[in-house]
Simulated scan of single mutants.
Amino acid sequence: MNIILTILRGIYVTYAATVFLAIMFVILPFIFIISFQGRLKGGNIMAYFMRCWAHIWFAFSGIWCKRIYQAARKRETCIYVVNHRSYLDAALAAKVMGLPFRSLGKVEMGKIPFFGFIYKKTVVTVDRSSAMARARSVREMMNTLKANISILIFPEGTLNESGQPLREFHDGAFRMAIETQTPIKPVLFLDAHARLPRKGLLYLNPGRCRVVFLPTVSVNGLSLADVQELKQRVFNAMDTVLRKYHQYPNPSLQLAG
């Protein structure tokens, strides 16, 4: 039975990867042409191509999404703060987040042939090994927010492999929210890690992906002295909801003050 399941899994993953690559090569020429429209205008147009890519790939891969809104939907520029447990998260974000938006992503992904070109044109990349590069990424994100384009940040900074709902958050998203007076929209990807576990691509499987949109957190009137309190408030809200949907063995991780 295990051999049969392994063969079926291999067939499914090969099929899903083929569909992913086929869509990528179809849209690649359009992305190249649109790139001449500039980073802001061109990036907004590219976001629709990325959404189309995600919609097609998820449908053909047998992965369906369910959006759960804990507050009334509202179109506004915001900073999406999202938990990060799977490499599927980026594709899921392209499918479900309100447009226009940009994600903050690792600069290393831009080195992948073909895909890297699309990645660099649609993501604000950050090189965490360089203070100068990090500062440049922050400036680009702030300029993006000023252009009324939302930003998506994984505040844990890397994949959560802790066994807890969340890893400790970095300050960046919360400092930026306060400095630009941009509201924070916490979002939870509940099942992405089940669809694509950390074990690797060979464990990709079809099924549902629930996405929970939590109430917006206002930063009106806050100063940089409130960063830690704001970070803790958002962390607690996300942690509480995650524990309602999944069981975890240990008490909630508490952030340092």
Rank of each mutant, 00 (worst) to 15 (best):
D239N: 15
G257Y: 07
E140Y: 10
L201S: 10
A173K: 02
A237V: 05
S86G: 13
I45F: 08
F213E: 06
L8V: 03
L202A: 12
F213N: 05
R51T: 10
Q181T: 06
L92K: 12
P100G: 06
V126M: 06
W57H: 12
S86Y: 11
N220Y: 02
L230K: 02
L214A: 08
I68K: 10
K244P: 02
L204K: 14
I153A: 00
K199Q: 14
A177M: 03
V211N: 12
M176W: 00
Q232N: 14
G116F: 08
K146S: 05
V13C: 07
L242E: 03
M141S: 03
D171Q: 07
Y48W: 13
Y87A: 09
Y248V: 12
N2D: 08
I23V: 09
Y245C: 12
N205L: 03
L224N: 14
G200S: 09
M238E: 06
P206K: 09
T182V: 04
L28Y: 13
E179M: 10
K185V: 06
V234W: 03
I33Y: 03
V212H: 00
M142V: 00
N236S: 13
V82P: 07
A256G: 14
I34Y: 03
L202H: 12
T144D: 05
P113I: 02
Y119P: 07
A22Y: 05
Q232E: 12
P249F: 03
P165C: 02
L224V: 07
S150P: 06
Q37D: 02
Q37N: 06
L214C: 08
K111W: 04
F101W: 08
Y87N: 14
T14L: 13
K106F: 10
K106V: 03
L104S: 11
F30V: 05
V107Q: 10
L230E: 01
A131C: 01
G43A: 04
Q164C: 06
S137L: 05
Y80P: 10
Q228G: 07
L8G: 01
V227N: 02
F169C: 06
Y48S: 04
K121S: 01
G200Y: 06
S252K: 15
I34P: 03
L145G: 02
